[in-house]
Design a binder for these strands. Sequence first.
DNA 1: CGAGGCCATTGATTCAAATCATGGTTCGTC
DNA 2: GACGAACCATGATTTGAATCAATGGCCTCG
Lengths: 260, 260
Amino acid sequence: MHTCGGSAAGEVLTTTECIACRHRLCSVFPPRDRSHHQTFRSLKRGDCLDAGSDETSRLWIVISGAVAMSATLPDGRRQILHIDMPGDLVCSMLTQDRDACVLEALDAVELCEIDLDSGSATAEATFALFEQARGRLTRSARQIICLGRLDATERLCSFLADMARRTGPGEENLRVSLPMTREDIADYLGLNAETVSRVFSRIRKSRLAIFLSPTEYVVPSLHDLERRIPIGLRQTRVAQPAGPAATASATQSAQEGNAS
Amino acid sequence: MHTCGGSAAGEVLTTTECIACRHRLCSVFPPRDRSHHQTFRSLKRGDCLDAGSDETSRLWIVISGAVAMSATLPDGRRQILHIDMPGDLVCSMLTQDRDACVLEALDAVELCEIDLDSGSATAEATFALFEQARGRLTRSARQIICLGRLDATERLCSFLADMARRTGPGEENLRVSLPMTREDIADYLGLNAETVSRVFSRIRKSRLAIFLSPTEYVVPSLHDLERRIPIGLRQTRVAQPAGPAATASATQSAQEGNAS
DNA sequence: CGAGGCCATTGATTCAAATCATGGTTCGTC
DNA sequence: GACGAACCATGATTTGAATCAATGGCCTCG
């Protein structure tokens, strides 16, 4: 019984089409239950993911929706550390203090769950995790610059452009889905929900993005949108694990075609 | 000729005492020149480190002083991504876009340089780097929370407490050196130099820290200082690479003795 | 269908930190 | 020891985003 795959439309993916396979994770992370790959799971907004114990950690691959790792301070202040979108690997092993952080669904989410027996971690798995960690470090660096030195408009342009780039290839008339609330976006960018709303209104007026609904927008020209971001902050996709013959040479950065 | 070690006082460390060895990096990262371990280097404020090409990356271990990885935007805004203190491993391999970032000495710095032939990277080296990456991700997460959700006073208390914890063990009357300018601290915490100065004055008045000079302070009680930081943000040391027989079980976090 | 809750938007006001401005200290150099 | 540069401290003012507040849309559920 291969339960991996499936979507809102109910389609069933075969083993070779499985989104986890496409990201070369099935072969890299040996599942505890060897009879099949992963278990399909479905979450609603607010549901949390349990990372499992140290012995059997869990990984997930997002199929649809958005998953956030967030920290909430005792007085209620919340900061989202990263947002994972379809195709991304969700993995609390990449942060040491899993106590302080929570993995939560920002809206309806579908994902593949992989139970990982850490005792049998292979060198290839370690390397794949290292590549993931490197990719996350790059993203963290951008977010630190964003939070430390960009104003609200720059942060939101950067965010919208990033989301567009992560949605797929292309430069013109990209349709992007934004499966989260204004407050989630604010908690990711160190703002508050009203400011997000206000700046979105200004972005809408300047035609840099066209909002079809609160959770869907079109970017007429990614180039124009990214011109509002200080150079050097263009976002790149999180690097996917390298090919099966992963060597230390897989060090080149995932460069985007930045039409400057 | 073993040039590793040495300090301002001019003492020479033997191979077994070498600070790099103490951090188990000599054996993990095979140096290109096998006749000795590393090369000792000395920098003055503003000097930059060259990470080397992809084929021969360089690592460094800080002996004294402070090294920052920073990014500067075209209009001059600067953000420090992390600050490395004595004992820390400095390594631009842990971020993908080395173009955007610069490794710079924040004042007089002494360090051990390791020329690493990436072609001969061992599984052990990969794992050690992974542990480093995990440690940096944890620190990045804290910094993101700091920049996104803490006010100036909380950021600076967190910073002073972190520096104290990284200096050494103990809870009372810790003497800490701060080898950087107010502007560097501001660029690390997303503030400006005047605000840092002002908040330091308030911290001084509240006796949470006593400044012996602009670059040296004493923390009478780390417990009191950390009470000004929202729970869950206490800083921990960057995890050092695990022992020589590094396995996937080396997953426990480097827990501090947080007398809460 | 209507009630209630959540979310988004927008306006009015407040506030924390940035900016602007000034003087003082330390330190290295001639 | 005088000079200049860099750094630190602190006051006055400005400003960008937070907070407070009100309204309206949409969705769910009884």
